[in-house]
């Protein structure tokens, strides 16, 4: 496993200012992402899980500089994309792409599917018109669509097919790294499987790296190699998939896993619930952000924020007690 990671993110922060009044003065910050670090090797999937408002989608967008990070560095193939200007960034975008959750709003309704997929090629001046069209047809076949469907508008596709169009667009420039932001959450169960299989096949054939963002633990377990669990802007646990799901260390991971309903009525679950709601990231709890909901919390947890520290090979947890 000694290789340089394709993607290296360190100390990533994104604060959204809260502005008020006529002069739009900043009165506070939403600490959406508060010091997140991870790396992804070529051909590897890092699953990023957490509940709504934990900042996982912001991480996905910030990593691609679709949103400017407040601090931190993001290296892709060794290039720090936070340090380059707009022109250079545009060139670097060939190496990284994104697939979104909502198959309806992620495609411009006024543009034909073939043009949507061919757009990145046009932007980067790849080939002439004929070559681009041939390449788009290939991409359509690659994601399991018929080239004849290139002339259709997005509304003429089903949800699953639209997601395939999105994936084809992301693959057009042969990127090494794809951020998949909840790519199957809006799809029906039977269609989810098709898209997950497609993503995994593509990874195998093209050695793609994924940052797979999802709230669905089962899907993350299935597709990821390693998993990072986020809570209120911070990673609380970061581990190999098998290790994490076999024995979660952070109380929050434990609670998440316990809460997932299992499709097997024979398993009688122990009731093991966390109480309360996810607090607001505008004014997160002191110390460990999870302490108000944590069944094990001690005095120390209320005042001192735990740092993410190594606990065994490739495994990190941010908890005073584990």
């Amino acid at each position: 496993m000694e290789q340089t990671p394709l993607v290296e993110v360190s100390g990533l922060r994104k604060f959204f200012p809260i502005r008020k009044g006529l002069l739009r003065r900043t009165v506070g910050n939403v600490r959406a992402v508060d010091g997140v670090s991870f790396s992804i090797n070529a051909g590897e999937t890092l699953g990023l899980v957490g509940e709504s408002g934990c900042g996982k989608s912001t991480v996905g967008r910030t990593v691609l500089r679709l949103i400017e990070p407040s601090a931190g560095s993001i290296k892709i193939n060794g290039n720090d994309i936070t340090a380059v200007g707009k022109q250079d960034l545009r060139a670097l975008r060939r190496q990284m792409q994104i697939v979104f959750q909502d198959p309806f709003s992620s495609l411009n309704p006024r543009i034909k599917a073939g043009e949507i997929v061919g757009e990145p090629l046009k932007v980067h001046g790849v080939g002439d018109r004929g070559e681009r069209e041939a390449k788009v047809a290939d991409l359509f076949r690659l994601v399991g669509l018929r080239p004849a469907q290139m002339n259709n508008y997005p509304h003429q596709f089903s949800g699953g097919q639209r997601q395939r169009v999105s994936i084809a667009r992301a693959l057009a420039l042969d990127p090494g790294f794809i951020v998949a932001d909840e790519p199957v959450s809006a799809l029906d169960v039977s269609i989810q499987a098709q898209v997950i299989n497609l993503l995994m096949d593509l990874q195998r054939d093209r050695k793609l790296s994924y940052l797979f963002i999802s709230h669905n633990l089962a899907v993350v377990e299935h597709i990821s190699h390693r998993v990072a669990v986020m809570y209120l802007g911070r990673i609380v646990e970061y581990a190999d998939k098998t290790a994490l799901f076999a024995k979660p260390l952070h109380p929050y991971t434990e609670a998440l896993l316990a809460a997932v309903p299992l499709p097997d009525p024979a398993l009688k679950r122990t009731k093991h619930r966390v109480e309360g709601d996810v607090p607001s990231p505008i004014n997160p709890p002191s110390g460990c952000h999870f302490h108000p909901r944590c069944p094990y919390a001690e005095a120390r947890c209320r005042v001192e924020a735990p740092v993410l520290r190594d606990v065994g090979v490739g495994r990190q947890v941010a908890c005073h007690l584990r």
């Binding site: 990284m96 757009e119 932007v123 667009r169 992301a170």
Partner: peptide
């Protein structure tokens, strides 16, 4: 956003 991500 997707268009932005392609470098447009």
């Amino acid at each position: 956003e997707a268009a932005k991500a392609t470098g447009m």
